[in-house]
């Protein structure tokens, strides 16, 4: 009974981190579900785009797990990779659209997802750095 109501909890998965994990979970689900569907139904149409969707899905899943279980180094590594991914793929889709005949989460800097894929890694990295004790 002595436990106060608002005892501050530490760790990546508490406080604002709760929301960060929720957003990463949504992207883990949508990116991996999208790639599974694309690979299952039309793998030969745009193999690079679909393989990339699958890679993005795996990265989001790893980042979600890392954040939710307070694995700081894994979180930093996967989110950095995510940032690199959205920047490189975003740039490539602008420079040469023929490389990616079908869209991925990271195409055109994530325009299909309201640019959340571009903003999310910055929020994620900021959170990993800020919540360090």
């Amino acid at each position: 009974m002595a436990e106060p109501h608002h005892r501050p909890q530490h760790g990546l998965q508490h406080g604002f981190g709760r929301v960060v994990v929720a957003i990463y979970a949504v992207f883990a689900l949508s990116a991996s579900a999208r790639s599974l569907y694309q690979l299952a139904t039309k793998a030969s149409e745009a193999p690079i785009a679909y393989a990339l969707s699958a890679l993005a899905g795996v990265i989001y899943i790893l980042a979600t797990v890392a954040l939710a279980t307070n694995r700081r180094r894994l979180a930093a590594a996967t989110i950095s990779f995510e940032l690199l991914g959205v920047l490189v793929v975003g740039l490539l889709t602008r420079v040469d659209a023929a490389l990616f005949p079908d869209a991925t989460v990271w195409s055109d800097f994530g325009v299909g997802y309201g640019f959340v894929p571009l903003v999310l890694p910055f929020v994620g990295l900021a959170w990993v750095l800020k919540s360090r004790r």
Partner: peptide, 19 residues
């Protein structure tokens, strides 16, 4: 959403509901 949000005893519990 409910399971993940209810466990957070701060304002970010409702933040999870928003997402």
């Amino acid at each position: 959403t409910l399971v993940w949000g209810v466990a957070e005893k701060s304002r970010w519990g409702t933040g999870v509901v928003l997402i």
